[in-house]
Design a protein around this nucleic acid. Sequence first.
DNA 1: CTGTTAGCGCGTTCAT
DNA 2: ATGAACGCGCTAACAG
Lengths: 334, 334
Amino acid sequence: MNDVARRAGVSVATVSNTLNRPQLVTESTRLRVQEAIGELGFVRNSTARSLKLGVVNTVGLVLVDLGNSFFVDIARGAEGTTQEHGLSLMIANADVDLQRQDHYLNLFNEARVSGILLAPLDASLEHVSSARTAGRPVVLVNYAARGYCGVVADDELGGHLAARHLIEQGRTRLAFVGGPLTLGAVEARMRGAQRAADEAGLALVHLPTQSLNASEGRRIAAQIARMPARRRFDGVVTAADTLAMACVQDLTAVHGLTVPGEVAVTGYDDNHFASDGPIPLSTVRQPGPAMGAAAAGLLLAELTGRPQHRHRTLTLKPSLVVRNSSVDTPHQPS
Amino acid sequence: MNDVARRAGVSVATVSNTLNRPQLVTESTRLRVQEAIGELGFVRNSTARSLKLGVVNTVGLVLVDLGNSFFVDIARGAEGTTQEHGLSLMIANADVDLQRQDHYLNLFNEARVSGILLAPLDASLEHVSSARTAGRPVVLVNYAARGYCGVVADDELGGHLAARHLIEQGRTRLAFVGGPLTLGAVEARMRGAQRAADEAGLALVHLPTQSLNASEGRRIAAQIARMPARRRFDGVVTAADTLAMACVQDLTAVHGLTVPGEVAVTGYDDNHFASDGPIPLSTVRQPGPAMGAAAAGLLLAELTGRPQHRHRTLTLKPSLVVRNSSVDTPHQPS
DNA sequence: CTGTTAGCGCGTTCAT
DNA sequence: ATGAACGCGCTAACAG
């Protein structure tokens, strides 16, 4: 800045002013300063700036898993909101690794970011993280915990939506595919499906899986195909699109059953690939962008509203997306 | 740090030493300092630290589009390498917006990051970006430009791989689906496909598209289906998985053709959804993780090797992934 | 409207 | 092994 000042024939304060409070500077000197900046290729040092100001105009977002498009949606939603308020968004990918998650949390803390948005590992011991947040505003996304603001999706409702939809299509032999139930989201989705079954006076059988990936979906497809036709499940609620896609694929291509004819299947998440298959997947759409935006909103509220701020958790509603895996001619094709 | 020093009964220098050069400090005082840090919840201020040191142990990654799993793969690859060298990776999503891209480039510059990895907008006027890089090491990913190190995929080879594969399956009426050709990658892929056709003495017809999305894929499917069966294309190379998936879906479900029986189709990118459909897509896999890792490697080389560093562009090879959209029983199912 | 100057929190050199 | 003091680049009084 010294060099710029010298070149423009002014003091450093004037340079600082043209940068941060242009209205305090005469047009002519301002132009002279701008020109000097351009000629010298000056880029201001935000570390020094932040040191002086004590804050950084940036929000840190730590995501469990960038590979899951749900979290990418959250990032997009968050960025929309932060951008509107003149904040930048930095994304860090924990890649399903608690150590990395803590590393980035710590990094953002040391960097004195305005606040942190955290979509944490489900299994994450929350105290480990909380020890790292050091009083900085942290808003949880897709996770609820005391002492934090948070945004979650209503998984119970999502499970209910999916099961009720299948029941409305006349399905009576219902199954819920997913696991492990230690995952809170899976458990809630099953609970919702169970409630829908109860309301209709039907039974719901749980077909547990070790994980939510494609190979488990294939295994379940074989299991369903082996059943005698008259007793076979005709309505299958799955806990994830990955499961459902693999299941539908094997049900039809490997086992020769018809979907949705003999077996109607719903997914969960509305991942980007859900609508791209030959049998587009009926699924429950996570309100990812809205969750990201809401989380950023809560963070902004916490930033401006302290210290009389009260933590709260927002629950956003998922929505049913009807495609071909549950209905032959969907009402609302995607 | 003052507080910590006082609490531990030492000077700030000793605190700094326990943090950065523990070997200079007696075990007992070191423990005392650690304890004080824990009790006070002290988190060191990296803005001050960076200001003093002049650098930041962080690499910035600016991505055109987080929504595309190819770029997520790049991010993963880059992080693996940076992590090995004790650098953190910050990700910024330009979201296909040149302004945002410049914003984040500028942000990283002001923050004095060690270096920047940039997967830029294809259409991006490169001088706009270069004006913003201010002498900081920048490595381009998925884009080649003079004056920078870069990593690109060999799209010409990819197109050749796909077309040759179809030819080896006995296909003779070949088409290339994709556009606009102003996209360098699309043009190169077509060129490679053309070369394979030339080598086999076959013709290749270009079916241009406005973009690479699903609706264009559907349009092309209809166009192909309308052709008389004996003249219809039996080998279709597409420029993207999105196109290919939609095309395969409509070819079979809407127009009643068989894939790969009557029409064999290849995709491009190996997006995460490519293998999840009922007819898993034969496709050309982008070496995303390798590209990210290589780019980070080039950046590290540039950081350590200056000033005698010479820019270079690495070209990584894509690979063919054979699934069911081109062969009934693929040799290497995914 | 512009210039002078005192720190922001930390790392490090030089004494001790 | 430890402590005192200076400066990294910038912002914001305050003085002119």
